[in-house]
Amino acid sequence: MRVAVVGLGAVGTRAARQLASTDGVERVLLCDTAEGRVDEVSSSLGSKAVARSGSTEQVPEADVVVLATPCGTQLQAAQKLIAEGIPVVTTSDEIDEVRALLDLGPEAEARGTSLIVGATFSPGLTCVLARLAADRLGSVDEIHVARLGTGGPACARQHHGSLGGVAVDWRDGGWQRRAAGSGRELSWFPDPIGAADCYRAALPDALLLVPAFPGVGRVTARLAATRRDRLTARLPMLRPPHPEGGLGAVRVEVRGRRDDGIAVEILGAMDRPGVAGGAVAALAAVELGEGRACHLGAGGLATMVEPKPFLRELARRGVKVASFG
């Protein structure tokens, strides 16, 4: 199969590297607006990589396309690709864009194709963890997601802005809008990360998880942040973000019931968000390219892939999941 990666930041570059090392992928088409970036990445990936010139808005000649451009820039490209019947993986975690991408579901279904929305570390891996945890329960009442860390500069800017926006939670059959930066909770992530204070933020997780779990009573998402992060969230970033962030982590807590009563499943993962996000996006593209999407239309990974095979392959690629006892 031929897979195009549009946008060669931290996540896109890692996704391209993962795809270039996948046996079933014949060509990895690379596209980015930054001058020289395509040639730089292409030269590091070997013979499978093909530098593609031209605008990132042009429809690539590929079997699957991964959109890894900055948040807020993926909708128009996704619309064009879906109109051509090309399967798409997006990496956006911006609320309005995720909502608009999900709205492309009916057209994608009519075109006989699939659109995976939010295929990164979080959302993305967290959606798969939520599905795995839910499968261990008889019914699901609540899902709570927490994340720590950032990938590349675009991710860091999105992280910064999300603490100054409006959080969207699901509670008792309706949406609740709360001020980002509120609702502090202490969350425990896999070692060596440990405990961190997490706050409401403008995160799209609930938009992806609520449709995947009909009848769920509550879905929340929180972001680890320091006091300085919260105080400066509505100001421009004080210093340029690092090209690639350090260690990050995610945690998914699913509360529900089994035959013997109330039960809780907690899963997590620790990795550099850019590395893990690239692996998730690449594997999602392989799933689409090999025709293993669970349904046509648009949705998050909680509805688009089978969790156990997906996580087994992800672990083989170096991204492993931990279960909290």
Rank of each mutant, 00 (worst) to 15 (best):
D23K: 06
P240V: 10
A279C: 14
D39H: 00
Q58I: 01
A284S: 15
C155N: 12
I266T: 15
P243F: 04
G278C: 11
L207A: 13
G149I: 05
L125R: 03
G261M: 13
G215I: 05
A62V: 10
E244F: 02
L115R: 03
G325K: 05
F310A: 06
G152T: 07
A224S: 15
R178L: 14
Q158F: 00
E142K: 06
V89E: 11
V210D: 12
V166H: 03
G278W: 09
P241I: 01
G46C: 00
G261C: 12
V305N: 10
V210I: 09
A279W: 09
L296T: 07
Q79L: 06
A225T: 11
A233I: 04
E265R: 07
L30R: 03
K48D: 13
G215C: 08
A195G: 07
E290A: 06
G173P: 15
F213G: 10
P240D: 12
D39S: 06
A212I: 03
G173L: 14
A51W: 06
V88F: 01
A51T: 09
D271Q: 09
D135Y: 05
A269R: 02
S187N: 05
F121G: 04
L30A: 09
A212N: 01
T303H: 03
G248M: 01
V89N: 10
P106D: 12
A233Y: 01
T120C: 14
G124Y: 03
A281R: 06
G300W: 04
I262H: 13
G261T: 12
V11C: 10
I82C: 05
S182L: 07
L267D: 15
L209C: 02
M237E: 14
A180I: 12
L19Q: 08
